[in-house]
Amino acid sequence: MIRFDCSHGQGDFSLNVAFEAESGVTALFGPSGSGKSTVIRLLAGLARPQRGHIEVDGTVLLDTTAGINLKPHRRRLGLVFQDAQLFPHLKVRTNLGYGRFFTCAADRVVSFEPVVEVLGIAHLLDRYPATLSGGERQRVAIGRALLTSPRLLLMDEPLASLDADRKLEVLPFIERLRDEFAIPIVYVSHAVEEVARLAARVVKIVGGKVATVGTPSEVLAPNLLASASERFDAVSVISGHVVRYDPDFAVTIVRHPAGEIVVPGRIDNGHAPVRITIRSTNVTLAVGRPGQVSVRTILFGTVERVETDGGPFALVVIALVGGDRLYAFATRLALDSLGLDAGDEVHALIKSVSIDERAVPRLVHSQPPTT
């Protein structure tokens, strides 16, 4: 269990954040400059708040009232930043062992071999950082942090400096360490794809304060007044099960009670459900079953409500068959033409090319990204 409650001022910026989190990945999500990285610095002991209490698994790391403020090395927290920050003169093997050197023998509960296997870096052990790709360097940095046997792993936008291909390379490894090591993770990002894919719990921070806390589908759901001007970042997160992979067309068919979802690439997720992230601006609405159209993903549901603030846009909330909610932005002009209102049945059309495979867990490419 993580308990965080701190107030901190820095120049004109004021932070006042409180949240609790358990196992798995807790994402700190929000726009740049909202205070996410400041929370990480306070957790790690790299900054001291004016007022605060921080506790991890029953160990108090900070309590300004009681005068407790453990030094960073005594907090036993692993840190991974945007820049891998590896020692350039040391080979990967030595870089990995560096953090472990500062952990006392009694606390070394994470072994070298499982970390190397989970992160897929055995073939890199005798290489220097300068010879690695950006994705490989980040995997080594994650391994170094993990080998400190931390009680909590802090990841501050670890993929922000990577291009799309390198992100796709690293994300499955973060999933594996999430699933195979019993170490909670606090993950900072402003990328909805990463949050939807990795997190069990999301803390949205805006302007130094907690705006909302919940599951990815709850927190990433759009609100008209808050999101009409930021509608391109508003998403729905729905779950389904893989039916099959079609090698002829290189797409995966995911079953949802409201209809089949066609996802680019190959998903290998066994029997576990997968999360599909759909941007609310990429949904087209139709009254009645569409005829001959190129769109393959057509989901059926009922309009739950229509929200508008009098501007050009409306937010349509659709209760899909099966229980998930799908959000769609449309112009008020279009909705007026369709005559859609609460209680009406509707088909939602989603182009497969608009579904971001980066947000789909355990995506397997037919050709792995080169390194």
Rank of each mutant, 00 (worst) to 15 (best):
Y245C: 06
N223Y: 10
P216R: 02
V210C: 05
V188I: 03
D248C: 09
R244D: 13
P216L: 05
P172D: 08
P222L: 04
V195N: 01
V210H: 01
V170D: 04
G207S: 04
R201S: 10
A228T: 14
V202T: 10
V195F: 00
D179G: 11
Y187I: 04
P216Q: 01
G240D: 09
L225S: 12
V195A: 06
L220G: 01
P184A: 01
I174A: 09
L225W: 11
F181T: 09
A221P: 00
V219M: 05
P172R: 11
V237W: 04
R231E: 07
V254G: 03
K204I: 02
V251M: 11
A191Y: 07
S239N: 10
L177G: 03
V235Y: 02
V195G: 00
F249V: 15
E194M: 06
I238F: 10
I174G: 10
S189F: 06
L220P: 08
F173I: 05
R231W: 03
L171A: 11
D248T: 13
A226W: 07
E180P: 06
V203R: 08
I185W: 03
D246I: 11
A226D: 14
Y187R: 04
G214K: 02
E230Q: 13
P216N: 01
S239C: 12
F181S: 06
S239P: 00
V203W: 07
F173Q: 10
G240W: 07
R244A: 13
G240E: 12
P222M: 07
E218K: 02
I185C: 05
S229G: 14
I185S: 00
L198Y: 08
G240H: 08
F249D: 09
E180H: 13
P222C: 06
Y187E: 05
S236C: 04
L225H: 13
A250F: 05
A226C: 05
S229K: 14
